[in-house]
Design a protein around this nucleic acid. Structure first.
Lengths: 228, 228
DNA sequence: CGCCGCTTTGAATTACATCAAAGGACGTGG
DNA sequence: CCACGTCCTTTGATGTAATTCAAAGCGGCG
């Protein structure tokens, strides 16, 4: 199995010539993490970044009392730990495998060397960071400007759009994790879903959720209406 | 007045050769914004980014009900609007001058052209974005994992460190803006400062604040203790 | 001087977290 | 294949931090 081939398939490295993919491949290290295993803890010295080949990874922060805020849940082809490569300090959050996960690891110094010689790679990384920035900005907006039901509504709509705009969504995370993502607790998630069901906005069946009233959900997401 | 000279003084462009500073200067446009004037609104098409020469700029989001969350308050030498240059969509937040502000404006396309030819400029921008990412991560942590008094304590300590670790801080923003920065409302800010004063952790006099008990403030910031 | 926006304070309200408990899903090992 | 434990999920009762609403004092600036 050729690492250059794998790399050519990763969106982040899209558009790079074969020779560059080979260069990148030559510094990449294939690693496998078991479910529950940590990639790094917040505050660890940053030694490089990862790209997921398969599996699922949670990026999160922990409060002193143990409550967790999930920043991202990432899947195949998505990179993480990039910020540390360029600001060269410690990881600003922790990363853990939610399932068995295969990754490519890119050591910091070597990767920076590549970037120096390949401007289009630099632009790819810039685009990636800029996009992360947008995503976090959105998260801040949600956390501070919206209440929990709105955040839930926004998340359901987001999931729905990701998956071809079907009305049938599959939460592929536990409601515990969903709570961490929305900045709340499992009990609240449960109650909100219940109320949405009562108002016939959604139909819930375990991790399967059908959107019955997309319009109401959208209104809810903007905070224009409330759950009674 | 030579734009290349000005640019050489900006931390973002530190370490670039004279010739590069000239190139950068040749695409930069000097602009002056009056107090209260908007640079752009959230959702506007992104046409470029700015670097502050003097003045003060607020980057913020507005909820549908009009509450605002301030993401950053920026001063001389700090850039803003960078994310849009590389993700090439719309501004993810709004920007407004809090005082008369002089900026250099860098049009998107031209700047990307420069980066293609100058890897060290790319690395500078990468470092900048990575740092922004850290800052936002911290904000998310504060908003979701800490309660208001902790966020206030953290902010006071942050200000104190910025200004040579003196115990005498000058909030150079209104408490209204401080509330927006901390993700709360002016009344809450007022009450928290009052309680901190009662517990002799700080002494407040208008916008001047003295830290009396730095240790207690630090404990508060981590959430280890609470205001009674 | 007079106005407008900032600031403070109190009382009422609310959204959400916490605590407690029970039911359910899932996987492991017997 | 069933029994068991663990974790996830739901539901109710209770508590609390923070927003909302209201009103009055303060301050700066035209």
């Amino acid at each position: 199995m050729d690492k250059a081939k794998i790399i050519a398939c990763i969106p982040l490295f899209k558009g790079l010539s074969d020779i560059h993919c080979q260069n990148i491949g030559s510094i990449a290290i294939l690693q496998i993490y078991a479910r529950g295993q940590m990639f790094f803890f917040e505050g660890d010295c940053g030694i490089g970044f990862y790209v997921i080949l398969s599996g699922k990874v949670k990026i999160f922060k922990l409060s002193t009392e143990g409550k967790e805020q999930i920043l991202h849940i990432l899947e195949a082809h998505e990179p993480f730990g990039e910020a540390v490569v360029f600001a060269g300090e410690n990881y600003p959050a922790s990363a853990q495998a939610l399932a068995e996960t295969r990754v490519l690891f890119f050591p910091r110094q070597k990767f920076v060397g590549l970037i120096r010689r390949e401007p289009s790679l630099a632009l790819s990384m810039l685009a990636l960071l800029a996009q992360r920035l947008r995503k976090l900005t959105k998260l801040v907006e949600n956390l501070s400007l919206k209440e929990a039901p709105s955040r839930m509504a926004a998340y359901l709509l987001f999931l729905s759009e990701q998956k071809n705009s079907t009305s049938n969504i599959d939460l592929d995370i536990t409601k515990n994790q969903l709570a961490g993502l929305l900045g709340t607790i499992p009990e609240t998630v449960s109650r909100i879903l219940k109320r949405m069901t009562e108002e016939k906005i959604i139909r819930a069946n375990g991790k399967k959720i059908s959107i019955l009233d997309r319009h109401a959900l959208a209104k809810l997401a903007q905070g224009a209406i409330k759950l009674t």
